[in-house]
Computed example of a mutant assay.
Amino acid sequence: MTGLRALPTPVTARAHGKINLHLGVDDAGADGYHELVTVFEALGTPETVTLTPAETDSVEVVGKYAAAGIPLDERNLALAAVVAFRERTGWNGRVAITIDKNVPVAGGMGGGSADAAAALVAVAALADFEDRAVLAEIAAGLGADVPFALLGGIALGRGRGDHLSRVLSRGTHHWVLATSTGELSTASVYARVDELRQAGHGADAARLAEPQGVLTALAAGDVEKLAAHVHNDMTEAAVSLMPDIARVMEEGRRAGAHAVLLSGSGPTVGFLAQNAKHALELAVLLEASRGVREVVRTTGPAPGAHIVE
């Protein structure tokens, strides 16, 4: 039939939130940034981003964690990713972006980074652009966690966390995540890390050593050994800013979690379970804990950013 315009074809991509199985943080450098050694694990908490060709750029946020205060301009990492892609490649399209949020906001789980990674994969598909190495370079310019959200799985990160190498891992990890009734900004936690160290607290120079215990446990598929070696240098700083985190952690220990781990800069706390049944038992016990907004059961590792057919 003539005279009808074809509807624009949307492209949908998905990326996942993460937890840091190990997070070693060096002192701030002259540029104010902290060198890191970290082991990322992508979790089954997805961010789904749909790009539809349009006359102007726009952002809409829907889903479980759609919240007031999420920016809808170029401060939004999904739109920032599209803009960066245009600048790098010369593609001149405009898109309407819909983000279906299933990663808790401001919880240290990298939901915004997952948005950016998913948007990069989606806009590359719209533009028929296949150079994944260029996408990784664009991702590194958007934020320290974006390259990992693009890669997925389990990876060792250095520098600002964006110099990545894949890690051998066996089996599935069962996690229970306790989101917080409060929020912490990443910048404030890093600043508190610096304050505590100036006062004589914190880890020594070994903080940037290879996390060999975590890597060995992952390769062996040994959950109990992994639980014995997970670590986050930011825990003391986050707890000092939000004492309820310590109470939630203690509730998890009493409930029998194999490991209790702050997620990134917090305030979400991850609890490592032996299996799905153990995760369910932990979740039930944690749901009534003070300072907990909600409890989420999930597994890892999850894949990197990819197109959803």
Rank of each mutant, 00 (worst) to 15 (best):
P8N: 09
T12P: 06
A13L: 02
H16W: 11
L23W: 02
L23V: 06
L23K: 00
A30R: 05
Y33G: 13
E35Y: 02
E41S: 13
A42T: 10
G44L: 05
T45L: 15
E47K: 01
T56Y: 00
E60R: 15
P71N: 01
N76A: 10
V82C: 14
V83L: 14
T89W: 08
T89A: 11
R94L: 01
T98I: 15
P104G: 07
G111K: 10
L126K: 08
A127K: 15
A139L: 09
A140P: 09
A140M: 12
D145W: 15
D145T: 13
L150I: 08
L151H: 13
G152F: 09
G152D: 10
R158Q: 14
H163P: 00
S165H: 07
S169Q: 14
G171I: 05
G171H: 07
T172M: 11
G182P: 01
T186D: 00
T186S: 02
S188C: 01
V189Q: 01
Y190H: 10
V193Y: 15
D194Y: 06
A199C: 01
G202C: 05
P211H: 09
A220M: 03
E224A: 15
K225G: 14
H229M: 06
H231R: 13
P243F: 07
A255C: 06
G256L: 02
G256D: 07
G256Q: 04
A259H: 11
L262S: 02
G266F: 02
G270C: 12
G270S: 14
F271G: 02
K277N: 01
K277D: 09
A283H: 03
A283K: 07
L286A: 04
E287D: 14
A288H: 13
A288N: 11
A288R: 15
R290I: 06
G291R: 03
V292M: 03
E294W: 14
A302S: 13
P303D: 14
G304Y: 08
H306N: 05
